[in-house]
């Protein structure tokens, strides 16, 4: 594994999936909690504005916030379906105006991996 020219080593994770969940402002924490409880390791939230069902609800649209939170969670493919399911239940996705979520498969991902985990999984060749 050791590269003679470059001491620096990058470990890329494979079998990763991205779950993106768009919810109303203030709802992200609940969704993230569900995902973390199901084993998700981290999450990123950013703010956005979104339109969709709100405009088709008429006056009831006031109950749906235009301001959204977009939750990005990277999970392993083994976890993916379970976390996706937990998140969709927590976000009450079956209710009109609550939001939208989807999962995409990722080619690879790089992040910090604790050295002891690396050592356990990749014994020195």
């Amino acid at each position: 594994m050791k590269d003679a020219f470059n001491e620096k080593k990058i470990t890329a994770l494979t079998d990763v999936a991205l779950i993106t969940c768009v919810v109303q402002r203030g709802m992200a924490d609940e969704v993230i909690k569900a995902a973390r409880d199901a084993g998700a390791q981290g999450s990123t939230v950013f703010y956005a504005r979104g339109y969709g069902v709100r405009e088709r609800l008429g006056l009831l649209g006031v109950a749906v916030d235009v301001e959204k939170e977009v939750v990005n969670i990277v999970v392993s493919t083994d976890q993916a379906n379970r976390i996706f399911e937990k998140m969709s239940v927590a976000a009450k996705m079956d209710t009109p105006g609550m939001g939208f979520m989807y999962m995409t498969h990722l080619d690879k991902a790089v992040t910090y991996i604790p050295p002891e985990v690396l050592e356990k999984l990749q014994p020195k060749c």
Binding site: R56, L57, L60, V64, P96
Partner: peptide, 15 residues
């Protein structure tokens, strides 16, 4: 798009 038809339970869930 046509207007969404809501069931009573949906009103409850939204409100």
């Amino acid at each position: 798009p046509p207007k969404v038809k809501l069931r009573v339970i949906d009103f409850y869930h939204i409100l």
